[in-house]
Write a protein that binds this DNA or RNA. Structure first.
Length: 114
RNA sequence: AGAUUAGUCCAGGCAAUCGCGUGAAGUUAUCUUUACGAGGAAAGUCCGGGCACCUCAGGAUAAUGACGCUGGGUAACUCCCAGGUACUGUAUUUAUAAUAAAUAUAGUAACGGAAAGUGGCGCAGAAAAUAUACCGCCAGGGCAACCUGGUAAGGGUGAAAAGGUGCGGUAAGAGCGCACCGCACUACCAGUGAUGGUAGUGGCAGGCAAAACCCCGUCAGGUGCAAGACCAAAUAGGUGAUCAUGUGUAAUCCUGCACAUCUAUGAUCACGGGUAGGUUGCUUGAGCCAGCUAGUAAUAUCUGGCCUAGAUGAAUGAUUGCUACGGAAUUUUAAAAUUCUUAUACAAAACCCGGCUUAUUCGACUAAUCUUCCC
RNA sequence: GCACCCAUAGCUCAGUUGGAUAGAGUGUCAGUUUCCGAAGCUGAAGGUCACAAGUUCGAUUCUUGUUGGGUGCG
């Protein structure tokens, strides 16, 4: 059975948890996304996102990007080993670019697969 | 019917799959069921409040800041409604050489005071506010150049030059006199008032700017939910108690013992402050909807009904189907039918309200003006 | 979320009781100097004073509204 949940245990919540991922210094780059990652000892992966105001000025556009990325994480994370991940969008994207984002996300997260 | 301008309204609906937040119930320690889940601007943070804490016994004044026609509304306002005045646009009418006046209508106004005071108005110009006299005009003197006096009509400068037009008057001129217009003052009438009307008096007070300082009047204490309240780990330090060790002091001086007090270190226990973190503040409120009554209106009273987001690395997404309104094309006298297309713009609550400002797709409605067609 | 600040030449900054031509340094370009270059000297170009309205005879300056950039408060 696939588990597509995205509960509170699947998120990074504290500032310490974010900075520990950044300090681990493992990064994968794409044109739209930049993924920091670090293995953890839990039973599932955890996601955090950083979308800066430089990407786009309007809050609803930034929230849309976060939702799209969260959706991709939710659908894929069950097949992964346990990692703490921080995703930083580098470039503004809209609904027409969805397939591009999907491809890039799959390419960058190949190494997490079991 | 179309166009333009101004204002108001709307911001689709139903369903499926995988997911998210909060509440409730049940199972229980992570699942199930169910209900609800973003705007007209949630935005900008530009004003006004509620609420909370701080200062003060309580208040007032000063300083500083904001506001400024009148009346009303409101919890309050720099907001809203109604009215006045001024200005601008349009139309009509009247008179005319230009143009002016009246009426209607639409819009705009930081619309108290410049005879309370201080300062400013570059260049040009004689002179920029105490008035003054370059050219000119007139009178007198002088052979003449020019000098003395009168004058402010005309010329010239400037954004702006000390009422305007006409007639009289005069040496030439001048509100010097008169008529009309403007202005100021007084009286009466109308109005709650801003103000308006009528009559009389005055020959004219006197430039612009207060979005220069300022004066007058009114209002405002400060800080913002990261306010504030509660719980409270680790580390460090504080206070108290007990125990242990050590040192010093006093009782005339020295030594020893005992006791007291002080101080230091360590251990244990307790206490309070307080950081991380958590809980609360947090959503029933100047609330929304409908109706009656009062009022020109803003709005208010009363009656009935309703409960409608509370996240915190921050909840509404992804994929898809049907369809309303709309747009385009074709058929058609029209109604209507078929096909295609769009199904979206601006934009995301962060303590809560009232406004203002700005952004905004497709449309709908109302009012005014203009154009065309028909009766 | 709340409270604030700034915008002038390619760059760094002056310039405010409102006055017409907006300056300085540096950089750029041209000339001069030198055998050549650097430094020096002389000259020139380069500005929507962020944008839009208003007040005023006149606005970089005063007022209001936008846009962009930045700071502080846990």
């Amino acid at each position: 059975m696939q588990n597509y949940k995205f509960a509170r245990t699947h998120r990074l919540l504290k500032a310490d948890e974010f900075s520990s991922v950044f300090l681990f210094r493992k990064v994968r780059h794409g044109t739209y996304l930049k993924i920091y990652f670090k293995p953890n000892e839990l039973n599932n992966s955890r996601l955090g996102q950083v979308v800066s105001k430089k990407v786009h000025k309007r809050a609803n556009k930034r929230n849309y990007m976060k939702r799209v990325i969260r959706e991709l994480f939710r659908l894929n994370q069950a097949n992964w080993k346990s990692y703490d991940i921080v995703i930083r969008p580098q470039k503004y994207f809209v609904q027409e670019d969805f397939s591009l984002i999907q491809d890039e996300f799959a390419r960058l997260t190949k190494i997490f697969l079991k």
